[in-house]
Amino acid sequence: MSEKTDSEASFLWSNFFQRDREKDIITLLRGVPIFEGLGRGQLRAVERILHRRKYHAGEYIFREGDPGLGMYIIEKGEVSIVSESRSSEIARMGKGEFFGEMAMFHERPRTASAVAWEDTKVFGFFQPDLLGLLETRPSIGTKVVLMLSRILAERLYRAGQENVRLRSELFLREHE
């Protein structure tokens, strides 16, 4: 009797935490711009195709020059984006932020390395899974692709603006 109660309690306990964990993940994904506009059920479908990985401090998530396969969303910890060729840190990212999204569209070599700054948990979201999502759940897949395109377009626009600013600065310096 007591054993049964114990196992029931443990089941309820783990189930409670499982639901809690799921809720946390859904809350985390809801905050990621790529998944903006997705409903709870849709986010759960996305969560099913994500790959959860743990990295120790100093461990490489991917290396500069490797073929890019997809992007990562940080669940816990910090990740440093490092340029190996320039031996410098480009950015430091934390919970809810994402990196490597260019690889969702093109299997080009990674332009920088990603290293876990501390013990880190990430969700990997990869091109083959996005293609699978587009095939099996097109309503979710197209929303994700649209949001990814918006983010990349926004970056392209900002890079263009920066380019114009730098050119005009250079022009002014040359004519001073």
Partner: peptide, 9 residues
């Protein structure tokens, strides 16, 4: 982790 992306691809 070291072979994760490669294996997936």
């Amino acid at each position: 982790n070291q072979f994760f992306e490669m294996s997936l691809s």
